[in-house]
Design a protein around this nucleic acid. Structure first.
Lengths: 184, 184
DNA sequence: ACCGACATGTTAGCGATGCTTACTTACGGG
DNA sequence: CCCGTAAGTAAGCATCGCTAACATGTCGGT
C-alpha cells in the first residue's frame, strides 16, 4: 500500500501495474489481491490517502485566528501548491469519482459555506456586487481549480512551477478575482 | 480511425483497446497497426482531430465584426461548451502532451495576444487596474479552464450540465471576473 | 495483357497485464 | 495444543499491445 502510494506519486497512475507493485514490494504477483480485491480499489485507497493529505494541508491553512478572507486565500494557495508538488496524486484524486465526489462534495461544503457566508457579509457591507453568492463562490473555485489543473496538465505558461512560484501565482490570481479586471 | 474517434467520444479513452476497436470496425486485431504504429499515435491522432474541432468552434465564436471583448466572451463560452458536450474528447485532448502543448501553446497564443492587447487598451482607458496584463490573461484562462475541468471532472455542483446551462455559466463567470467580486 | 509495387488485410504468436483458484505457511487466542 | 485467520505462493485464464510472415487486391508502367 505504501509502495503503491509512493509509486503513483513519483511515476503516475498509468505507470502502476499490480505486478510491478508486487515486484517492488518483494512479494508475488497475487499477493496485493489479498489486500485489495481490485486495482480500482487500490487506486481508490491511494486517492483517499492523497485526499486526506490535501485536506490536512487545507485545514492547516485555515487558521481561525485569521479573518475569513485571509483564510480563504491561504486555502487557495494550499490547494494550488499541492497540485504543483504532487501533480500525479492530484490527477488521481480528480479522476477517482468516489473520492473526488466526496472530497469536492462533502468536505468542501464546509469551505464553500464559509466562503458564501463571507460573501453575504461583504454584500451587506456594500463591498461586493449583488451577484449570486453561489456563482461568486463557484467562480473562485473554478479559478483555483483551473490554476491547479493548468499546472498538472503542464500548460505551457505555468509548467514546472516551483512551489514558491505556485504560491505567488495563486495569491496574485485570487486577489485579481477579488478586485476584478474591470473590463466594462 | 473514425471508429476510434467515435468510441473515445462515447466511451472514453481508457475503454478503448486496439482489439476492441478492430472488432468494432469489423477487421482483424492487427489491422489498425497498418494505420497507426502505436496506440499512442492513434490517440494522438484522435486528440488532434478533437483539437481542430475545438479550434474550429473557437474560430466560429470569434467573429471579427464584434468587438474584442465580445469575442473573448464568446470564445470562453465555446470552450466551456465543448468540454460539456464532449468531456471524453476534452479529457483526451488535455492529457495528450503533444496536442495540448501545441493547442494551448501555439494556437492559443493568438487568442492570448488578442486578449492582452485588449487589456492594454483597457488599462490606457483607465478601465482596468494596472496589474500585470500577463497575469490578467492567465487568470481568465484559468477561470475558463477551471470551469471546463470542473464539468468534465464531474464536480458535484456542475455535473450533467446541459450545453445551454454551460453557456450561461461560462458567461456569468467571465462577466464576474471582469467586474470583480470586490472583496477588499 | 502482364508484372511489380504498394496499401491493406490476415493468422499466429510473444510477453505483460488484471485477476482467479487452489495450495501452503505463520501466528495468536480458545 | 490446535485451529482459524491473515498473508503469501504457484499456476493458469483471458485480454491486451504489438510483431512477424504471409495473403490479396488495386494500381500504373511497359
Amino acid at each position: 500500500m505504501e509502495t503503491a502510494f509512493r509509486l503513483v506519486d513519483s511515476e503516475g497512475v498509468e505507470a502502476l501495474s499490480m505486478r510491478a507493485l508486487a515486484r517492488e514490494a518483494g512479494v508475488s504477483s497475487a499477493a496485493p489481491f489479498r489486500h485489495f480485491a481490485d486495482k480500482q480499489l487500490l487506486l481508490q485507497a491511494v486517492a483517499e490517502k492523497a485526499s486526506t493529505e490535501l485536506q490536512r494541508k487545507l485545514d492547516d491553512a485555515s487558521d481561525d485566528r485569521q479573518d475569513a478572507l485571509t483564510q480563504f486565500r491561504a486555502m487557495t494557495v494550499a490547494y494550488v501548491r499541492f497540485a504543483a508538488e504532487h501533480p500525479k496524486l492530484f490527477q488521481l484524486l480528480q479522476q477517482t469519482p468516489s473520492v473526488s465526489g466526496a472530497f469536492l462534495g462533502e468536505l468542501n461544503d464546509e469551505r464553500r459555506l464559509k466562503l458564501i457566508a463571507l460573501i453575504y457579509e461583504g454584500q451587506n457591507a456594500g463591498l461586493i456586487p449583488d451577484a449570486d453568492p453561489e456563482l461568486i463562490a463557484l467562480s473562485s473555485e473554478a479559478l483555483t481549480h483551473g490554476l491547479a489543473r493548468m499546472i498538472v496538465d503542464r500548460h505551457p505558461r505555468v509548467r514546472d512551477l516551483s512551489s514558491e512560484d505556485a504560491r505567488k501565482l495563486a495569491l496574485a490570481a485570487t486577489q485579481l478575482l477579488q478586485s476584478g479586471i474591470g473590463l466594462s
